[in-house]
Design a protein around this nucleic acid. Sequence first.
DNA 1: CACACTTACGATATTCGTAAGGATT
DNA 2: AATCCTTACGAATATCGTAAGTGTG
Lengths: 295, 295
Amino acid sequence: MNVKQLRSFLAVAETLSFVIASERLHTSQSALSMAIKGLEESLGGKVFVRTTRSVQLTPEGESLLPLARKLLADWDSVHHELQQRFSLGIGKVSIAAMPSFAINVLPRALKQFRALHPKISVQVHDVINEDVIDMVQIGEVELGIGFKPYPASLAFEPLFNDQFVAIVPPGSGFEDEERVEWEALLQHPFISLQKPSAVHAYLEDSLRDSPLVLKTELEAHQLSTVGKMVATGLGVSVVPALCTPQMEALGAKVLKLKDARLEQPVGLIWHRERERSAATHALYNVLKSVGSQPD
Amino acid sequence: MNVKQLRSFLAVAETLSFVIASERLHTSQSALSMAIKGLEESLGGKVFVRTTRSVQLTPEGESLLPLARKLLADWDSVHHELQQRFSLGIGKVSIAAMPSFAINVLPRALKQFRALHPKISVQVHDVINEDVIDMVQIGEVELGIGFKPYPASLAFEPLFNDQFVAIVPPGSGFEDEERVEWEALLQHPFISLQKPSAVHAYLEDSLRDSPLVLKTELEAHQLSTVGKMVATGLGVSVVPALCTPQMEALGAKVLKLKDARLEQPVGLIWHRERERSAATHALYNVLKSVGSQPD
DNA sequence: CACACTTACGATATTCGTAAGGATT
DNA sequence: AATCCTTACGAATATCGTAAGTGTG
């Protein structure tokens, strides 16, 4: 019993005519005749009674009819669903992105992606860089966006280099300058993101060889909170340059840092061993084209 | 997408190896490779990632796996059910039989039938001859057993000729005789079956040309009730000879009638235009062999 | 005799298995 | 080197369509 035979059966059962059914199936009557014959051999008995002038179902054929209908409907449904999944007609993508990217770049990219593939739902996990790495590692998301990761099991495709910038309160002594030295910046109370943050780690790393120390006096969990703290004069901080417009909107002043080491590649992260779905691949491509122009 | 491709997919997905899967499918690796290739072309994307050293499912393949399992399970289930139905492994038969036959012959036939086909359930409608005809006509049963019917749409296969016999109370004036004349019989109160009964109709028909009249003084719905009434001396009656043992067991005396016209063929009845199931056909054969030897 | 299904038969496709190819561990 | 999947190719198989056959109304 194969699919073609069952389709033939259904067509004949519904038309009660080999001629009409063969037209509906775009085949010859003889081929249809053979298909039904094959089906009957496979089942071990006749499903139709042919009296040269009329075709009717046997009781066994009668009981096959609803079963065949359901079987073929399910069959086509599965076939269609998989086709849709491959052609991006349907699908689901889960990604994780670090906040600076999620806020400043992702919306634009997602708008473009959704325009291309409106039926694919996207779930964004807006978490700090460390959690992005974890979620990709665990397999909770197929794709992450963050700083270049250490684990060898993860692959990385850079989008752009993000440099850190200093943010200071308006009206502070830095106002006239465009660039600021670390030494001058650290004279002020330092407001940092929560401890396991990538920003924090990079800052400590880049200051390792210098006599300077990060005196963290305030901590926050959200970039916008840090920005607002700085804006109200509680201290200074260092954030990814991506956040510049956001920080300025909050009322903080953004200054470049005179230290080239504070530059990190931001890019797409995925698990080498895990396959990405067609939908994820499509999003990957959009992010690659949109994400490499952060402005 | 066809059945073979889906079976190939399932085998590879479960073994994660083309070699092992091809052994399980009793085919060559190349054939399996082509089958998967064909499936992937049909679906529009890859379901496996082959890295020459390992095979793993793509996310799309992962989502196909449970669907394929169900599809094939349903498929095989339908195939098996139909095979069983044809090979009489399962099935259901509905027949209608007139009471005299249902009581005196059918049990023996059904015992033999059930021994041959234990998984086939049989539903017996124990109804008067007229209802047997109706139920076959309507299609409520595929097979009936009763007197030869009139409708041209029904086919009839005789099993035996049943003649009517007189039943009288023990100790009545007939005791010494083996045969009884109509005239003598109708001197006594006549107990008949309910009006539309075939027995009643035949009796009236066979008395049409004679001066005798059926004076029905009592009516009952069941043969055994009639028998008991006769046995207790309420009157006399005429019943199919088949019921002889039953009537004697109830205490009535059975006498032959001196009238050859009171003989009717009893046999199998079915609708010419309606197909009979394999199970019904099997029962038909058993009834033909058992039913033609009523004793 | 016209219609509808089956069978026959040659041609076309498809599928199969063996064997060679390519890639990875 | 050994293993495993893919590709190539000739052979076996299956399927198809045309056309003839068969039986019914």
